[in-house]
């Protein structure tokens, strides 16, 4: 009786790429819940729109490429892209924009390059950047912190472009703190004066700093679960902290504090959830530190001297390009070779 033969090893660790993707999704949940608490139901609607779009776009391309649908759809990677993009979008963006961004992320950024594992750019952040460049006005419209739109208002804003219970969308929305600070600095206000603005919370924007704090908890859980390693988040936040401290100490009148930089905008979401995307990041520990540090520094440069209020999307994309080169130059010393 012949036995089944297969190559060694015959033992496998109980790890699974789909499980890793699922854990990333779980880690996003608390942040999204707090998001709803402060900004209303828009984000949930965006998550749903993005998820459906991501899965159907992925299915479409797989069908066109004559690939089996099931393994790719069930690996969870499309959902991760969808959720991350939705988490980065304002709850006020119209439905088609979420769809467009997600479809672009999945079809162009991910599948046209060969699908999971082959894409040089992080799909979620590339989709976000595409929207940011194409529709800056809509992308910059965020809920004012004074009142949260209800479920019906959120639905109406996303699908009709205006709320139900209040006359205009403008009554509900306002600029983000990053925007406000940038514009006020242009008008020669000092940081100390800007800090009197009602948007300011403890360290950064009210509510946003809390949302980011909860995203941080999700990221720490991923670290604890060893889904991600500490190198990239620490390097992103560490380098941003150092460079902002340097300028803050230099002139605290025109350069905001390092803590403000860390808790504002998308740095935490970016550092823990997006920059750590293994497909598009550097792989060695040393390489990850360089990669993360590059992102932190670019965020600061774009925020401080660039045209956009936040820089995380472009910082990640720019460092995505460098990942293969970083990998090439940070190869470890092989066992038995001279030091």
């Amino acid at each position: 009786m012949p036995f089944k033969t297969s190559p060694s090893p015959f033992l496998y660790a109980p790890t699974d790429t789909s499980a890793i993707m699922r854990q990333v999704l779980y880690a996003l949940v608390p942040g999204l819940v707090i998001y709803v608490y402060f900004f209303g139901w828009g984000v949930v609607i965006n998550v749903l729109i993005a998820s459906l779009t991501a899965l159907s776009s992925e299915a479409l391309v797989l069908w066109l490429r004559n690939r089996p649908l099931r393994p790719s759809l069930s690996d969870g990677s499309a959902l991760v892209t969808a959720w991350l993009l939705a988490a980065a979008l304002s709850p006020f963006v119209p439905w088609w924009m979420t769809m467009l961004g997600t479809a672009f992320a999945i079809i162009v950024v991910k599948q046209l390059y060969g699908g999971l594992g082959y894409n040089p750019f992080n799909p979620a952040i590339a989709g976000y950047a595409m929207l940011l460049i194409s529709f800056p006005a809509d992308m910059g419209k965020w809920p004012a912190l004074t009142s949260q739109p209800g479920m019906l208002d959120s639905l109406s804003i996303i699908f009709n472009g205006h709320p139900l219970t209040v006359p205009t969308l403008d009554a509900l929305s306002g600029a983000t703190l990053l925007d406000t600070v940038k514009n006020s600095l242009k008008q020669s206000y000092t940081i100390q004066e800007i800090q009197q603005h009602p948007l300011f919370g403890y360290m950064g924007a009210k509510s946003v700093e809390v949302i980011n704090g909860v995203f941080l908890l999700g990221g720490l859980w991923l670290l604890y679960k060893r889904v991600i390693s500490w190198h990239i988040p620490v390097a992103v936040m560490g380098s941003l902290f150092l460079i902002s401290t340097f300028f803050f100490v230099w002139d605290s009148g025109i350069y905001p504090s390092p803590l403000y930089h860390l808790v504002s905008g998308g740095v935490i979401l970016g550092a823990f959830f997006i920059a750590t995307d293994p497909v598009t990041a550097a792989t060695s520990n040393q390489g990850r530190l360089i990669y993360g540090a590059g992102i932190g520094i670019l965020v600061y440069i774009i925020r401080t001297w660039g045209g956009y209020p936040d820089g995380i999307a472009f910082a990640v994309l720019l460092m995505n390009i460098t990942a293969p080169m970083i990998d090439y130059y940070t190869q470890p010393r092989v066992f038995g070779y001279p030091k």
Binding site: T17, P71, L116, Y118, P278, T283, V334
Partner: peptide
């Protein structure tokens, strides 16, 4: 082994390689 999935470059392999290969 469960069905093959694409490499996501997670680098778990390099972390455990006793020869420190990639």
């Amino acid at each position: 082994p469960p069905p093959l999935l694409p490499c996501i470059r997670c680098n778990a392999c390099a972390q455990v390689c006793p020869i420190h290969l990639l």
